[in-house]
Measured scan of single mutants.
Amino acid sequence: VTVHVDGVEYDFDNPEEALKFAKKVAEDKNGTYEVHGNQIRVT
C-alpha cells in the first residue's frame, strides 16, 4: 500500500498501518485522505 503525501510516497506492507498513518497525517495538516485501491492520497 502506498500513501502519497505532498508528492512523497510512503510504502507500507500492512494496509492497517498505512491507513493509520494516512489518518494521522491528514489530521495533523487538517486535510483529508482518499483511498483508491492500494493507493491512499492525503490532501
Rank of each mutant, 00 (worst) to 15 (best):
I40F: 04
V8P: 00
A18V: 00
V35T: 06
N14I: 07
N14H: 07
F12Y: 04
D13Q: 11
N38Y: 05
N30D: 08
V8F: 11
D13Y: 07
K24I: 07
G37C: 12
G31S: 06
F21Q: 00
F21D: 00
Y10R: 03
Q39E: 12
V25W: 11
A22V: 04
K23L: 06
E16G: 07
I40P: 00
K20G: 07
K29P: 03
K29N: 13
K29V: 14
L19I: 11
A22R: 02
V8D: 07
G31P: 01
Y33C: 08
T43D: 08
V3C: 03
K20S: 12
E9K: 14
N14V: 06
E27H: 13
E27S: 13
H4E: 09
D6C: 12
V1D: 02
T2E: 03
N14G: 08
F21V: 01
K24H: 08
E16D: 12
K29Y: 15
F12S: 00
F21I: 00
T43V: 15
K20I: 12
T43S: 12
I40D: 01
E9D: 10
V42Q: 01
K20H: 09
T2A: 05
D28T: 10
E27I: 11
V8S: 07
K20T: 11
K23R: 11
A26M: 04
K24M: 11
Q39L: 11
F21K: 00
N30G: 14
N14S: 12
V5F: 09
N38S: 09
K20A: 14
L19R: 05
V42H: 02
G37D: 07
T43K: 12
D13V: 10
V42E: 02
V1R: 05
V8R: 12
H36M: 13
Q39Y: 13
G31Q: 05
K24N: 07
G7R: 04
E9P: 10
I40N: 01
R41W: 15
E34P: 01
H4Q: 08
F21M: 03
V42I: 12
V5D: 04
V25E: 08
V3N: 01
A26N: 02
V35I: 13
V1Y: 15
G37N: 06
V8Q: 11
E34I: 13
V25C: 14
A26Q: 03
A22G: 02
D13S: 11
E16P: 03
G31L: 08
Y10M: 04
A22E: 00
P15M: 15
G7A: 05
F12D: 00
A22K: 01
G37L: 06
L19K: 04
T43Y: 15
V1P: 04
E34L: 09
D13K: 11
V3R: 01
E9C: 14
G31M: 12
V8T: 09
V1Q: 04
E17S: 09
G37W: 04
H4M: 12
G31F: 06
V5Y: 09
V35A: 05
K23D: 04
K24F: 08
N30I: 04
N30Q: 10
E9N: 10
A26V: 06
D11E: 14
D13F: 08
A26C: 14
E27Q: 13
D11V: 15
Y10P: 00
I40A: 01
N38F: 06
D6Q: 06
K20D: 11
Q39S: 11
K20Q: 12
G37V: 05
V3A: 02
G37F: 06
H36E: 13
H36K: 12
L19W: 07
D6W: 07
P15N: 08
H36C: 13
K23I: 12
T32P: 02
